[in-house]
Write a protein that binds this DNA or RNA. Sequence first.
DNA 1: TAAAAATACTCCATAGGTATTTTAT
DNA 2: ATAAAATACCTATGGAGTATTTTTA
Lengths: 169, 169
Amino acid sequence: MEVELRHLRALVAVVDAGTFTDAADRLGTSQASVSRAIIALETALGARILQRTTRHVSLTGTGSRILPGARRALDEVAHLQRVIAQSRTELRVGYAWAALGRHTRRLPKRWAAAHSGMPLVFVHSATPTAGLAEGTADVAVIRRPLDDPRFDRRAVEAEREPLPVITSR
Amino acid sequence: MEVELRHLRALVAVVDAGTFTDAADRLGTSQASVSRAIIALETALGARILQRTTRHVSLTGTGSRILPGARRALDEVAHLQRVIAQSRTELRVGYAWAALGRHTRRLPKRWAAAHSGMPLVFVHSATPTAGLAEGTADVAVIRRPLDDPRFDRRAVEAEREPLPVITSR
DNA sequence: TAAAAATACTCCATAGGTATTTTAT
DNA sequence: ATAAAATACCTATGGAGTATTTTTA
């Protein structure tokens, strides 16, 4: 079996919480799940990591040697998420033809009031999904019905025909 | 969905190999599996990581920003494995009563000849598993039949009764 | 048109939950 | 006697393989 992050998450949760039961609480899962994750980790690594009785949990020598590295691995992926969150500096609104009609002026103001940190950027893209499928837009305003399972949609206004908004999932 | 190491393994394999198909070869899996792992990673991170057509695969801006971290995370867990491999400096042979009988002298010599790097250490432990269940031995020599699903066993010699050897799995 | 990624479909492994058992103090 | 980890049992999620479809250079 291969080491997976879920195993490492269980390990640090147990070490930090002190017991499998409390670790399960923090992780939002069951004590049994934590127990199995630890066993899986020990199997994958081929070594006992936690010395445990029903009354006491402590790291083995091996365990204390690997714990810092386990934390670093988790920190690295947490860092990935932060990098991505920070790189989302703007919300790109795709449109194919006439932008948002009469909302064109109101929407940016309301958006800026509610999300001062993140600018709205309007992106013209004359495709069926107005840039969503192409990755040039995060949200798109379209005027034709679209039945693409990759995207969620919501109707915001009826003109002569419905005006759905589709968003990347 | 949560980021898992299998996703990161797929990512670096694709970047290194250049195509999903070749990455699948390296990983010993199928192209479809790699494709799904990348999609899962992008879903978990909430961002597109690889820009791909059927003819070309390249990192997105976000992708190149996170790739080094992905490699570091994988390096950290590879490091865990190395730490553990290095900490296995001896093989502890548990015995409960009379050690290995007439093998007591021959075994260490044959072992040393075959595995010069790793010393054999004999550990006395008067328990049913001669220290295996207790974690004080890696292998144990016992004289009584033992039917414990946690351990593998192999008969090495018949005395009056069979003499099984059980090993940790 | 060919090569490669995505998807559909199926199967199976395994993760997870609940309940119970085992174990150590 | 009790609190906690391990396990048994079941369900369901989702991961993997194969085959097919879609896509683009």
